[in-house]
Write a protein that binds this DNA or RNA. Sequence first.
DNA 1: TCGCGAAATTGACTTGCGTCAAGGATGCAT
DNA 2: ATGCATCCTTGACGCAAGTCAATTTCGCGA
Lengths: 248, 248
Amino acid sequence: MASPPTCLSSVAHRTIRRTCVNCALSELCVPVGLDQKDMERLDQLVDRQQPLPAHAHLCRIGERFSTLYAVRSGCFKSYRMDREGRERVLAFHLPGELMGLDAIYPGVYQSNIVALDVGGVCALPYNDLSRLAAQIPRLQEQIFRLLSKDLSAYAWLGGDHSAEERVAGFLLDLSNRYRERGYSDRVFNLAMPRRDIANYLRLATETVSRIITRFERQGLIRTERREVQLLDLEGLNERANHCLQVTG
Amino acid sequence: MASPPTCLSSVAHRTIRRTCVNCALSELCVPVGLDQKDMERLDQLVDRQQPLPAHAHLCRIGERFSTLYAVRSGCFKSYRMDREGRERVLAFHLPGELMGLDAIYPGVYQSNIVALDVGGVCALPYNDLSRLAAQIPRLQEQIFRLLSKDLSAYAWLGGDHSAEERVAGFLLDLSNRYRERGYSDRVFNLAMPRRDIANYLRLATETVSRIITRFERQGLIRTERREVQLLDLEGLNERANHCLQVTG
DNA sequence: TCGCGAAATTGACTTGCGTCAAGGATGCAT
DNA sequence: ATGCATCCTTGACGCAAGTCAATTTCGCGA
């Protein structure tokens, strides 16, 4: 794996000409395993968009699907509205992850995707990507894998875990994903408010708050607003019943 | 769509030489949209296995992944065991549906798949399928779509629906899937015991039983053991809060 | 036909989590 | 600084669904 960036934003800004080839995320993102020649072909169809301001939407439910988005920096949230107009958070997306995959089947976006903070994305025109995938077996394979990976993540959310298991699992999942990206797996910032965490875990905000306090009293974690420090990974693992979301 | 078969088992047995080309499920399964020539190429890699007896396992968690399975007849169930050894049903699979997709990413089966009754499957060697998909864009596209479709199905299970919403949604989802396959969407048999339904919906068996009784008293359905008749689709839709699982 | 075990139903009781409500902390605009 | 809005936390209470337990029904083999 390439040497990790020191902070997320540096990934996007320190290079003059940003390409997949020199992107620190290439080992987590679509181009996994491509050689330089193929990466350059992929590069040509990638549209590196302007950074988005916080709370800007990337796409909305019902819009015609044409592009997948890869997170370059920041954290994104995808969500739907249910019949009563209540928000349902489906996923949080960290750098290197692909968004919009659930829109492929119906051809229409199935979720709203919004930047939780300033964030950058690469837009991947689906038809072009699909065509290229047919020419580069390794790329096709990687897209299959990314789709398959999301299945496991969704399956976790579907399990009937207790509130404690959910919160512990959520923290450990983030921890793993940050580690994969070269950041600390013990200290990190929650990009999303408690309300979004609770909604994602299908719990009440108050329940999440209470459990975080409980974990803190039990010496498992320390928190200071959005900043979290995991003190006892083994203990958290026990609370999560050892069933993490996706173990990379 | 081809004229529907009159009963599920006839699909598998009435032809001498069974191929994708003459399979009644080809419009629901992997070969959607392929012309006859491409379908014949697909056909060559399909291994039409012996019918499986009830409760026979197709694969087990942890086994090395090498083949996807398509349901030809019967109904299958995929499930995991959690830490405490309790079963977690992940999905039921009807004819034409693809199983094992979540194993692509890790390369190891993520769930046990078992026949609920006698049932037949087509085995699709993943590497061969993947190679062929690179040569037939329409096939690659269809695999992307099937993977994407499963994402939406899993997302429904993840929502925090009430017990009533879950049961109503489950019945309507089955209804839709049976209709797609050319069977009655009002009268059908539940291939799975209540326990499996409850487990799939993350409810207690007793809760499912109570809600079925309630729906029956309200004149929404009639049941006779495993046989179900949907009397009031609109009423069920209201109980499900109008959010069906996947609307084909 | 009988008898056994599994599946399904129903009732009584318990509980985890949601809801409601209040209070504190933080950040931003004026 | 001051006021205001948002976020987070904490407590009191209620309810939906789980658990426990008893009964009925069904399927199947002897």
